[in-house]
Design a protein around this nucleic acid. Structure first.
Length: 346
DNA sequence: TCTGGGGTCCTAGGACCC
DNA sequence: TCTGGGGTCCTAGGACCC
C-alpha cells in the first residue's frame, strides 16, 4: 500500500550549529539575523532549551534577547544549512520518491505495509549519516502526513489516516490545518466555523461565495483531510527571484531608497543570470516605518536577461510610489517569463 | 526594545477586445 | 435617452509557508 511520509528535521538550524560547536549542546541556542540580537531581525530557529523560555521562530531577536539574555545568538549561515540539507535529502532518496519542501523537510513516497518500519529506518539512517534527528509523519496523503509530524515531535513517528482524521484533528481550531493561517481562521470564525470538524461539514458554495471560488471548496476539502497523495521529485521551476533589505534606521531620504533599489536590482540580476531565463517583470516592495507594505511592478520592455533593463523597470516601478514617508524595508523581485509553453507543439 | 528574507498562489478590479 | 456578456491581460494586494 502507498503511503506518504513527511520527514522534518528537529530544530534544524540550531542542531546544525550544535554539531559545529559541540560545547553548545544543552544550551539555549538562537539562530537568526546576523547574530546580533540588538538589531532588527527575527528568530529563524531556537533550540528546545530556548523554546521553554518562550523563544521560538518568528519572534523579534530583541524580544528573544530580553526573554533569554544568556542565550547563544548565532547568525544564519545559509551555506552550512544548504550543505546539511543536501546530505539529508540524499539519504532520504534511498527510501523512495522525495519531494523537497525546504531546508529541513520533505515528503517521501513509499510502498510498504508497515510505514512505521520505514519511518524508523529513515530516522536511524539520517542520524547515522548526518547526526541530525528528525520526526516522521505518516498519512494517506500529503496533508495528513504533514500534520502528523507535529504530533511526533521531537524525534517521534505519528500516523494520521482517513479513519483517524477526525479523532485527531476534529476538535482542533481551523488554523491547525496547513494552508489556514490566522486571517482565514478569523474569517471562518465570522461564519461560525471554529473547528476542523465544522469546516468539514460547511457548504463549499457558501465558503466559495465568502472566500473565493477556488479557495472555498478547497478549504472544505482540507477540513475533511482530503488532499493530494502524489509525491513528485520533478525539480521545481522557480517563478521569481527577489532580494530585500531591512534598514537598521528607517530611510527618510528617498534618494537613498532609490539607491537601494538600484543596488538590489543589480543583485537580483546577478542572481538570475545563471538561470539564463528571460525576466518579464520587475516588482519593487516598500515597507513603511509603521510596517505597512506596498508594492508596484512594471513589465520589462521585452523579455530580457539584461541587468540594465531590469534596473530601468525597477526604477519605473519605484516611480509609482507617490507616498514618500520613511521606509524600513526595500525589496526588488524579478519575475520570469512563464515557462509553460516551452514544449508547445504546432 | 517590535515585527527577516525568500518564495508561492489566489483574488479582484479595470482595461481592452470581440 | 442607451449602455450585454465573455474572455484575457495587467496590476495590486492578501495570505500563507519555511
Amino acid at each position: 500500500m502507498a503511503w506518504v511520509l513527511h520527514v522534518d528535521l528537529d530544530q534544524f538550524l540550531a542542531a546544525v550549529e550544535v554539531l559545529r560547536h559541540p560545547e553548545l549542546r544543552g544550551k539555549p541556542v538562537v539562530v537568526g539575523g546576523d547574530g546580533d540580537p540588538t538589531k532588527r531581525g527575527v528568530v529563524s530557529t531556537a533550540s528546545y532549551e530556548a523554546r521553554v523560555h518562550g523563544v521560538r521562530s518568528g519572534i523579534p531577536l530583541r524580544v528573544a534577547a530580553r526573554r533569554l539574555p544568556d542565550a547563544v545568538f548565532l547568525p544564519v549561515d545559509k551555506d552550512a544549512y544548504d550543505s546539511a540539507s543536501a546530505d539529508v535529502m540524499r539519504t532520504l532518496k534511498e527510501f523512495g520518491v522525495v519531494e523537497i519542501l525546504g531546508w529541513d523537510e520533505a515528503f517521501v513516497g513509499v510502498d510498504h505495509d508497515q510505514p512505521e518500519v520505514t519511518a524508523r529506518r529513515i530516522q536511524e539512517r539520517v542520524l547515522a549519516e548526518t547526526r541530525l534527528e528528525c520526526s516522521v509523519g505518516i498519512g494517506q496523503n500529503k496533508l495528513q502526513a504533514k500534520l502528523a509530524t507535529g504530533f511526533g515531535k521531537p524525534a517521534g513517528i505519528f500516523r494520521i489516516t482517513h479513519d483517524t482524521w477526525f479523532a485527531v484533528l476534529g476538535d482542533r481550531p481551523t488554523d491547525a490545518l496547513y494552508g489556514i493561517g490566522s486571517k482565514t481562521a478569523k474569517r471562518l470564525a465570522a461564519l461560525g466555523i471554529e473547528t476542523v470538524r465544522q469546516l468539514a461539514h460547511a457548504d463549499p458554495d457558501r465558503l466559495g461565495a465568502a472566500l473565493g471560488p477556488a479557495t472555498g471548496p478547497w478549504l472544505v476539502q482540507i477540513g475533511r483531510g482530503r488532499a493530494s497523495a502524489r509525491v513528485s521529485d520533478t525539480p521545481h521551476v522557480v517563478r521569481s527571484r527577489s532580494r530585500e533589505m531591512t534598514f537598521q534606521q528607517d530611510l527618510e531620504d528617498w534618494d537613498e531608497v532609490r539607491a537601494a533599489v538600484v543596488e538590489l536590482a543589480h543583485k537580483v540580476a546577478a542572481d538570475v543570470s545563471p538561470d539564463g531565463r528571460d525576466v518579464a517583470r520587475m516588482v519593487v516592495k516598500v515597507r513603511y516605518a509603521p510596517f505597512f507594505t506596498s508594492s508596484h511592478g512594471r513589465k520589462t520592455q521585452r523579455p530580457t536577461t539584461d541587468p540594465h533593463a531590469m534596473e530601468l523597470s525597477a526604477l519605473a516601478a519605484l516611480e509609482a510610489f507617490t507616498d514618500r514617508r520613511p521606509v524600513r524595508l526595500v525589496g526588488v523581485r524579478a519575475e520570469f517569463v512563464p515557462d509553460d509553453q516551452g514544449s508547445a507543439g504546432p
